[in-house]
Every structure is written in structure tokens, then in C-alpha cells.
């Protein structure tokens, strides 16, 4: 690469900037946390790949929670997820990111402003389907759940360590199809624990509800619901 040097009569200055590029997202995430705390609302970031069963898990959670829940759904386009959740009788907001592969704190802030925060106890935030990028963008939630399905391949966890490092709870979903695709949910659970030994891992089937009670009970006790 050609480096341009100063010419005669020009002066060079070294400037210290120390400018953190994630600063803005982190700042808004902290503000979101503060807004929610002031209203006494708990928030959970539900992350996971496309088709892992995030919406299904949220449906099963909503059915089992006896507090006032609102759901924020993130997708590139459509209101399919928010429409599904609406039929469960909860307030929903669909965020369409257009092209972005993850939610960020500012998008969640906008969604919060369209919810009646005085009548909500818990907000479940369904991130855009993606097992990579959402890990990089904190939203201001106090708990992070990662959903990964046995249908995604036996190595779905071991190939994506990053997102599990900060996860509080993990659902290995669709355990019923594991045999058909050659996955072993127990091995996937071990993979999660090898990255993050304090994550609570649940083997779930969101069609039959298997494993969901345990997950919801743990969520209730973690959040004091």
C-alpha cells in the first residue's frame, strides 16, 4: 500500500481519539435497562438460529407465565411472529430490520416506546434468527436465552461458541427429530457446558411441551416472577 508522506511546509500531528465504536449501542442498552428497571419490568433476549423454534418456545412460555407479558419480535420482514403471539393474548411489537441480521439497542428502544410500560411485568424479545451476530449487540435485557435445535446438525453448538458464552439459559429444541438427523441433544448440551459451565441447559420439544415447564420454572425463579 502506498503511504502518503507530508510535503514541505506541512506539519504532522498525532491525535489520540480513544473512540469506542460500540459505545453508542452499549449506552442505549444501559438506558433501556434503566427504563425497564424504573418500571419494574424484566426483559429477556431470546436468540437463536433461523427455524430453531424461538417463536414456538415463546408461545409455550407465554402459556405458562401468569404475569403480564409483552413480546417484541425481530425479523427482516413480515409480521408472522407478532401475529402468532397476538393470538396468545399478549401485546406484541414487530420490528422489521429490513436487512440487518440482528436487533440492536436502539431498535428495542423504539419498540419500548410503542408499548404501555405501566401494564407489563415481562418483555420477551425475540431476536432475528441468527446464531452469530446478535451476540455482539446487547439490548439491555437482564437475561439471555439461546435456542438451538437438534435439527440444525450435531455440531450446531460447537461451531458457534460465541453466542453461548454470555447465555444464561439454553434450550436444545426439537429433541424429537434428533435421531432422524443424527444429532445427539445430550452431546449438544455438553458442548454448551464446555463453553459456559454456568448456563442452564434444557432439552425441549415445543410441540409436546417436553422440557418447557422446567425452563419456565427456572426463568420464574431467576427473574423473581
Amino acid at each position: 500500500m502506498k503511504v502518503i508522506e507530508p510535503e514541505e511546509g506541512e506539519v504532522i500531528f498525532d491525535i489520540e481519539l480513544d473512540e469506542n465504536l460500540q459505545k453508542e449501542n452499549l449506552r442505549i442498552a444501559e438506558e433501556n435497562k434503566k427504563i425497564l428497571r424504573e418500571k419494574g419490568i424484566k426483559a429477556v433476549d431470546v436468540m437463536g438460529s433461523v427455524g430453531a423454534g424461538k417463536t414456538s418456545l415463546i408461545e409455550r412460555m407465554v402459556e405458562r407465565l401468569d404475569v403480564k407479558v409483552a413480546v417484541i419480535n425481530g425479523d427482516l420482514t413480515t409480521t408472522i411472529d407478532a401475529d402468532r403471539l397476538k393470538t396468545k393474548g399478549v401485546e406484541t411489537v414487530q420490528i422489521n430490520t429490513g436487512k440487518e441480521c440482528h436487533l440492536d439497542a436502539n431498535l428495542v428502544r423504539k419498540a419500548l416506546s410503542s408499548l404501555d410500560l405501566d401494564s407489563i411485568d415481562l418483555i420477551l424479545i425475540e431476536n432475528v434468527g441468527n446464531l452469530i451476530c446478535p451476540a455482539e449487540f446487547p439490548l439491555g435485557a437482564e437475561l439471555r436465552i439461546v435456542v438451538v435445535s437438534a435439527a440444525e446438525s450435531p455440531w450446531a453448538v460447537s461451531k458457534h461458541p460465541y453466542i453461548f458464552l454470555d447465555a444464561d439459559m439454553v434450550a436444545i429444541n426439537k429433541v424429537d427429530v434428533a435421531k432422524l438427523v443424527g444429532s445427539d441433544p445430550t452431546k449438544m448440551k455438553e458442548d454448551v457446558l464446555s463453553f459456559n459451565p454456568s448456563a442452564e441447559v434444557f432439552l425441549t420439544n415445543c410441540v409436546t411441551g417436553e422440557g418447557v415447564d422446567e425452563l419456565v420454572n427456572s426463568l420464574k425463579s431467576k427473574l423473581g416472577l
Binding site: E10, I15, D18, L21
Partner: peptide, 13 residues
């Protein structure tokens, strides 16, 4: 290890 920071720059004035 999660940081992305512009430490500084060298300018010609």
C-alpha cells in the same frame, strides 16, 4: 477482547 476502538490518527496540517 470485545472492544473496537479508534486509538488515534496521524494528520497532516
Amino acid at each position: 477482547g470485545k472492544e473496537c476502538i479508534i486509538k488515534g490518527m496521524r494528520i497532516v496540517v
